[in-house]
């Protein structure tokens, strides 16, 4: 650990301070009360304040004596695809039904890998859909229709 600036430290500190500040500001909108009878805002205000201080502390430490952290690549495409897959799942499960929702979610997720071939991805998605139906619908009796109102006539 040599004395130097560390971007990850500064970033982490900024995230902490930012979230802490958001909670502090929001807490002020609730009744604070007194230490004897704390209102809903009291405790989050204090903890939020602590988080802001810790975050600033991490930023300062990152400026003067940061931790050496190996950064490495960020898989932006994978992140986007997995988020989209989860949102898609949440949006369509009820409407399109279990089978299509799971299949598309699995397919989108599979493409989050940079190395997967399209054919393999489709096979993985199909296999996963079958397994999910067996485990959750047949095995655990989850009450979800295989095909939802969008696909049944």
């Amino acid at each position: 650990m040599d004395n130097r600036r560390s971007v990850p430290d500064i970033l982490a500190g900024a995230i902490f301070a930012g979230i802490g500040l958001a909670f502090v500001v929001a807490s002020l909108g609730y009744e604070l009360g007194t230490p004897l009878r704390m209102g809903p805002g009291y405790f989050p205000l204090v903890v939020g304040g602590i988080l802001v201080l810790l975050g600033l502390g991490i930023v300062v430490k990152g400026l003067v004596a940061g931790e050496a952290i190996e950064w490495g690549p960020v898989p932006w495409r994978s992140m986007l695809l997995i988020v989209v897959a989860l949102v898609f799942f949440g949006l369509t499960l009820r409407r399109a039904g279990f089978l299509p929702a799971v299949f598309v979610t699995a397919l989108l997720t599979a493409f989050a890998s940079y190395r997967i071939k399209p054919v393999t991805a489709v096979m993985v998605a199909a296999g996963l859909t079958g397994m999910s139906i067996l485990i959750f619908i047949v095995g655990l009796q989850l009450r979800l229709p295989l095909f939802g109102p969008w696909l049944t006539f």
Binding site: L86, G90, L93, T105, A106, A112, V124, L128, S132
Partner: peptide, 29 residues
């Protein structure tokens, strides 16, 4: 490549089935 889609899919179904609420799945993301 076969494994992690399974984790994501099972996580989505599992989280959803907790209270049958899509919100919980978005929270995972």
């Amino acid at each position: 490549q076969w494994l992690f889609p399974a984790i994501v899919v099972f996580a989505a179904i599992g989280t959803y089935s907790l209270s049958f609420n899509s919100f919980d799945v978005y929270a995972v993301a």
